Amino acid sequence: MSMFSSLSRITLAKAAIFKNAPVYIQFYVTSRCNLECEQCNIIFANSDVRECTIDEIERIADNFAEMKVAIVLLTGGEPFVRKDLPQIIHAFESRGIHVRMQTNGFASEEQIVRAIEAGGKDISISLDSLHPDRQAIINGKVENSWNRALRAMAIFMRHLPREGSFASLGCVLQPQNMADIEDVIRFGTAASWFTSLVPVHVSDNAAPRGFRSFDQTLQFRETEYATVDAIIERVRRMRTEGYLLYDSDQYLDDIKRFVRNEKTTWRSHNHDVCDSPNLYFALLPNGEFAPCCDHRMEKSYPAYAPEFPSQYKQRQFREEVARITSACSGCMYGSYPEMTVSMRFLAAKIQRVKTFITSPPDKNWPLSYEELLELAESIRSERRERPQSRRNDG
């Protein structure tokens, strides 16, 4: 059973050939969140705009269906704080647009069940460590956030179909969790969940970027570069050994460059410019177009407006976006780079086809919360050499 509708499959195929089809949209449906993670600034960056009404979201879904958008990521903030999330999911899924849900794991079982019943069958949960105390610090000193994430994993496994679904852990590589990366991947694989790495992004007040933390202590130090390199090479080997790591070789290599503030290469097949808006873009909570989570447009382009599908194709609009993207030094936010890599680099394209279509891994679901706790403890206790994380003292 395919996870993607015929509309999504056709758009993905066209994008792979022509590199100019709206494959992937990140929709920040809210800026509200029940965590204040150290590495995230989005709850503050988007707090100045209102949230779309469900009527506006229905119109966005109509426009996206007309534009033949393949995938919409519903993110935030924390999307499950919206009581109408099931209606939002249904708005897109009922029009053949694949929905990916992103969460910190604080949703109740009732909320999760309603989201799945509405059509959501693709989930990403944030998990940066197998140590509850370390995860709590990363999440802004929120106790039990690690346990809540594992409970949510168990609930999703209990209610998602084994076939035609996808589950992954989003793990942010930062100085304070370098010892945890391999453990998270091992844990995810044992639970039949992929892991996707994102290096921490840090901005400064002189040149702020929307998603990036202002905490300068999260920057990797020169003395830590070799440790990052070793982690990347280890997880690359793990993927060849059968562990469920989502990331492509091109993306892994660019993590090394990014932490050194060196030029990344994932945009090299497109004149060193990202593929927004050709392959992907973002929507602010109020439904306005944005090139990505880091940048906004000077003019307002609401995606619920009747004229948005035609505006999206106009030369003037594309030139306005290009002025922003051509000046950007680039990011490593996972989905954006990997979408470009998947469409422009053959090896990654083949890898994605295997992951989602020809050879998706079998799932050992369901696993209970208690089984996940035992699994995490078992992996934490394994006697293996681990890199040294920086202490959480700045």
Rank of each mutant, 00 (worst) to 15 (best):
D62S: 10
S94C: 04
E370D: 11
P161W: 10
L150M: 10
K141L: 02
I54R: 06
L7Q: 00
R50I: 13
A13E: 03
S381V: 08
V198K: 00
R237K: 15
D362R: 15
T240P: 04
F156M: 10
F166M: 10
M3E: 04
C33D: 00
A152K: 01
R380S: 10
V69C: 11
E385F: 14
V353G: 09
T358C: 12
P79V: 04
I138Y: 01
E56R: 02
H201E: 09
S300V: 15
N144R: 13
R134K: 15
K83N: 13
G334T: 07
A206R: 15
E182A: 14
T11L: 01
A347D: 15
E374L: 10
A115V: 06
R148P: 00
K363C: 09
C33N: 03
R344H: 06
M153N: 06
Q111W: 02
R267K: 12
L218V: 09
A290P: 02
A206E: 11
E370I: 08
T227W: 04
T355V: 14
A152Y: 01
Q39Y: 12
P86V: 03
D55T: 15
E56H: 05
L244K: 06
F258H: 11
Y333M: 15
E93G: 11
L160K: 03
V235I: 09
R352S: 09
A149F: 08
Q39H: 14
T189V: 13
I43D: 10
S335M: 11
R100F: 12
L279K: 10
R390C: 13
N46F: 15
L173Q: 00
T264K: 03
L346P: 09
Q87F: 08
D62C: 12
D294Y: 08
A230R: 11
A136V: 03
L245K: 03
